[in-house]
Structure formats: structure tokens, C-alpha cells
Design a protein around this nucleic acid. Structure first.
Lengths: 107, 107
DNA sequence: TGCATAATTGGTAGAATAGCCAAATAGTTG
DNA sequence: CAACTATTTGGCTATTCTACCAATTATGCA
């Protein structure tokens, strides 16, 4: 694998890694329904606010969300909605896995 | 967040985590062009065969690839091609990030 | 059966990640 | 300006991930 190709997959992995955590997936899902401030997300997630803030920072660095400060609050919004299309495929994988599992235990 | 919702995002994260590594993304990309045996992938990747095998095992457990033994070799193939659609979106994010970066440094 | 090849599994050291607390920063209000 | 609120950052520990080597398993062939 040449250097250029390597860089390409590293860049992709960087974005995908940003999504690879339940809390961050929850945040993306929530933001798909509109912008939220950090305190709203903290209440929904139920973790320390510093933890939530760090998750948001990872999503922001990856370019998946954007933020805007208004007064004391920081509001986050989805920057690239196409991310959502992916979840359909992920659900397909999960469904297929469940199907295969059922098939495996039934024989 | 209730227990059911939590499980849902954990399941999704499990699949996405399986993709969140440059080598595994390379494998998925390579398999999108046809099935490959472990030794072919090892040659392309240039890592220890045990490392490649473990990456394949992660993809297989997630249900993203499937394997079939033929003689001495094990051949891997993509199980859910819809995964590929996602990379278009990931590239969009990367492009958007690059654009934003250019804009930021030019002012 | 004994040897060679392909792949997986077990073990381990080092790197990366996640979560919490405490401290710092930024904006608001009396 | 002091007190307060919302968020981020730094520091720390526990956990998870990754890559390699060595050992094991499975198959093919002389």
C-alpha cells in the first residue's frame, strides 16, 4: 500500500472513529432533529458535562458537527446530514446478523 | 436515555467501531472489488499475518465480511455492500473540512 | 505418516480512549 | 466588580485496542 493510499484510509478512519461511540451516535441522532445546547445533551445523556463536552469536541474536530455560542450556552448542530444515511445500512447489518443468528441456533 | 435506546446505540457503535481503523477500511475497499484470501491481503497491507487475521476477525464478528475456507486458503468477501455508500459521505466530510480549513487560513 | 503452507489463537507490551474531578475560561447579572 | 452559570481544558486512572511473536490448528502432498 503506497503512502497516498495509506493517508486516504487514515483520514477516513479518523472520521469514522469519531462516530464509533454510543454516546456520540446518540448525539448525532439527537442533532438530526435540530440543534441542542450542551446542557440539554448532558441532561439526556446523564454523564458529567466534561465528558459530554469532550465527545462534542471529537465530533467537531472531525467536522461532523458545528457549534455556535449564544450567551452562556453553546449550541451544536449537525454539519453533514449525509451521515444519517449510513445508519440505515448499519441497521441492515444488525438485522442480517440477527437473522443469521436465529438461523444458526435453530438447526 | 432509557435502556432500550442505550442498547440501540451500543449495537450501532459496535458495527461502526469495526470499521474505525485504516487497515480495516482498506480491507473493505479491497473486498468491494472482489473476494480476497488472507495471504493476498497480508501482502497488500504488509503487516504480520496474525495482525491481518485479527482485523478480518473483527470485521467478520461485526457481520461486515464473510469467509469461506477453500483448501489451505480462507477467502473473504463483503457481506453488506451498502457499507460502501458511506464512504461517499465520509469523503464529503473530508472535502468540506479541507474547504473550511482553506477559508480559515486565507483570512 | 511426516513435512510444508495458510490461517487462527494466546500472550504481552505500548498506545489510545473514556470517564470523572478540579481548575480555568467566557459570558451574564446584580 | 463580584457572584453565578455554562462550557472547556488539564490531569489522572482504568480500560480497551493494536501489533508483534510464538504456538496451535487445519489442510495438502510426498
Amino acid at each position: 500500500m503506497n503512502e497516498k493510499k495509506k493517508k486516504k484510509f487514515e483520514a477516513r478512519a479518523w472520521i469514522i472513529k469519531a462516530l464509533a461511540h454510543p454516546t456520540r451516535l446518540f448525539i448525532v441522532d439527537e442533532l438530526s432533529r435540530g440543534e441542542r445546547c450542551v446542557c440539554e445533551l448532558r441532561d439526556m445523556i446523564g454523564a458529567d458535562i466534561s465528558t459530554v463536552s469532550k465527545h462534542l469536541s471529537i465530533l467537531k474536530q472531525a467536522g461532523i458537527v458545528q457549534d455556535e455560542k449564544r450567551g452562556l450556552q453553546v449550541w451544536y448542530a449537525l454539519r453533514v446530514p449525509c451521515i444519517l444515511n449510513f445508519f440505515g445500512c448499519v441497521e441492515d447489518v444488525l438485522k442480517e446478523n440477527a437473522r443469521q443468528y436465529q438461523w444458526a441456533v435453530s438447526r
